[in-house]
Amino acid sequence: MVPVPPYVPLEIVNMYLPVVYTGLIIGFFSLIAIAMEKRQIHILILTDIVGFAMILVVASVGTDLAESFILPGLVVELAEILAISEILISREMRKIQSTNINKTLAPLPMKYDMEILTTAPNFLTLVLLAYGVFLTGFTGGAIAGGGILLYVLSRKARGLPIVEIEGISGLSGIGWCMWLIALCLFFLLPQYWLLSLFLAAAGLLLKVATKMGIIGIFMREEYGKK
């Protein structure tokens, strides 16, 4: 038996076996659900639950090595579900186009009917951007990016032309570089840790915010495509 360090509380040690069994039982029941379900999109969603049960089983160990198991596990799950949904989409498109050439699976144009998009979207966008910059880091990036998304949506909902910013993906690259420089500074010049911390936070902010902005612009391009 592995010696557990004495400073680990007894409750956490006792939680190990119940969590393992919970994970396995969740996995088993989702397998039963998958066996009973007939529609393939539902099977795909149910399969994701098995992935969450995997995270439960791995997390039950609770050491840093187990944590390093969780990250690749999550990434593998995410990559597989993306790949399989792509396969599902391309197969359905092929099926449809083999019978009817003109029909496509491309999404229909969206109809926005929300008051928030017509009353004060610019002010809200400014607030979101300012709050995101104030927060910095990953959360701040998500909030600022949400602001950009809201702006693009509101312009589209009011029928105004959307200003196309070509360099927005380049900005994301600059954010990535800032993050990398900060990482190197952490190791080379540890006395400037505050500088590198803020460099990394600002880099992440730029990166995540522009990612969300890109989603908004790409969405428009995809849906507007003929």
């Binding site: 393992v20 994970g23 396995l24 996995g27 397998l31 998958i34 399969t47 994701d48 098995v50 992935g51 049960a53 995997m54 089983v57 791995v58 039950s60 160990v61 187990a66 198991f69 596990g73 593998v76 799950e77 597989e80 579900i81 399989i84």
Partner: peptide, 13 residues
């Protein structure tokens, strides 16, 4: 995808 549960879970056990 389903078999990532026994794979990672087994390694974690």
């Amino acid at each position: 995808m389903m078999c990532s549960l026994p794979l990672f879970g087994g390694a974690a056990l």
